[in-house]
Design a protein around this nucleic acid. Structure first.
Lengths: 173, 173
DNA sequence: CGCTGCCGTTCCGTAAACGGAACAGTCGGG
DNA sequence: CCCGACTGTTCCGTTTACGGAACGGCAGCG
């Protein structure tokens, strides 16, 4: 648990929104010294302080806390996926994961039940994934989709780790 | 944000484990007075204190923080987006949302800072979204992507609510 | 050059969160 | 009973996070 990490995230979120330290401090009702020290990690903020700041940024407290994984994490040889959310609608159940694929030989996953589809959005790196006999390739910003009732593979192209979101759709039986 | 709620959760977790306040305080390396005050909600704990206690209980910080639903981003009339995760890599910060768009007239969002891109993966329904003057359309399973430094719109096509994931990418400046 | 306005950091007195010790209450054993 | 070991709370001196003010730096403007 590193206060410096929390500080960096707060600063990143603030700068994304294009607001200055001074104004954020004023909006959140905390001192500029407090916010400055918080962003630098030189202070050990009170829950109240952190709450005031994150609320003003419009993010939950969890967004700045160094929590590695909220949900269960699945580790394979190349792929690490953490479950972010499960939700259902009238005709399917969805599982949304954040996925990371390490550079190297890649990984093979067994077939899912019939009708299951996977949707992958690539954030960083280049991903080659899909049915084992006909994988697809997507660069950062790209999107892949396949029916995963056959064995399928994931691999990073090049030396960069791939970051992506993975959605599994299980049709209601 | 209620410190009393945090206190009750800590006490509940401690009692589930059948350990006394005294021993938890000793294991966590905090004073008994500190833990007592924390559980009663009469103190405003430091991040360090709360971390020491929750770590000893074997739960993530998020387990005791009063966040029931991650902050609904009140995009407004038609769109509801809840922040699932924030993460950063070497050249950008990402915010991942689950988004729902209600059927009806849709909604306009103001421009983001330059360089920000949005990636949407549609799970259910049909979504029309993108730059306000040139929106794109995607059915379930589809994917949209645009540079969002201009005003942009979201609308559900047809009577079905749209479920989607939304990724905002903020380049490091 | 001033002057103004905003930026983020540092200084500093005050308020409060901190840990240790003292406290009353409760249980079980000799 | 009385004692020891334990519970959780309260007291208190020390530490430290707090906000306001003062500071230097950097634009834009007359």
């Amino acid at each position: 648990m590193d206060p410096a990490v929390v500080g960096r995230r707060v600063r990143a979120l603030r700068e994304e929104r294009g607001i200055s330290l001074s104004t954020l401090a004023r909006l959140a009702g905390v001192g500029k010294a407090t916010l400055s020290g918080l962003e630098h990690g030189t202070r050990n903020p009170t829950l109240e302080t952190l709450w005031a700041v994150t609320a003003q940024l419009g993010v939950p407290l969890t967004a700045v806390l160094a929590e590695p994984a909220a949900g269960p994490t699945v580790h394979g040889t190349a792929v690490t996926a953490t479950l972010l959310e499960v939700f259902t609608d009238t005709d399917a159940t969805y599982e949304l994961y954040r996925m990371r694929v390490a550079p190297g030989p890649g990984q093979l996953s067994p077939a899912h039940p019939p009708g299951v589809t996977e949707h992958v959005t690539v954030f960083a790196g280049v991903l080659r994934a899909g049915p084992a006999d006909a994988p697809l390739t997507a660069p950062a910003g790209g999107h892949l989709r396949w029916v995963s009732d056959v064995p399928h593979s994931y691999a990073a192209v090049g030396d960069e780790e791939v970051a992506a979101s993975l959605l599994l759709r299980y049709p209601r039986r």
